[in-house]
């Protein structure tokens, strides 16, 4: 192993990072696919409402539409910050 290889090993290979990001993104986009067009808009509005009360980031609200038998189930996941950070 050459000296350059030692340097290279320090950073995680960028392709591995790309793969992780794509696996997450593709899964997310596939889950949204076929769902109604209003989902992304609704997700944004829910985000706005919650932000009136607590400070959260865009990725802290996840909206998913799942099928449970013949029922559509809307799953809403909100990650709230640790207490003490309310506005």
């Amino acid at each position: 192993m050459g000296l350059m290889d030692l340097f290279r090993k320090r950073k995680p290979a960028s392709a591995a990072v790309a793969k992780e990001r794509l696996l997450i993104l593709v899964a997310q986009e596939r889950a949204q696919r076929g769902g109604p067009d209003y989902l992304p808009v609704m997700q944004r509005e829910i985000l706005e409402v919650i932000r009136k009360y607590v400070q959260i980031n865009n990725e802290d609200v996840q909206v998913r539409l799942d099928k449970d038998g013949d029922q559509d189930v809307l799953e809403l996941n909100v990650v709230l910050p640790e207490s003490g950070t309310e506005r």
């Binding site: 290279r8 290979a13 960028s14 392709a15 591995a16 794509l22 696996l23 593709v26």
Partner: peptide
């Protein structure tokens, strides 16, 4: 570039898609 870790490999692409 795949060997250098800077390009997605065939296996990666197959797994993702």
């Amino acid at each position: 570039r795949v060997a250098e870790g800077d390009m997605l490999s065939i296996a990666d692409i197959e797994e993702i898609l």
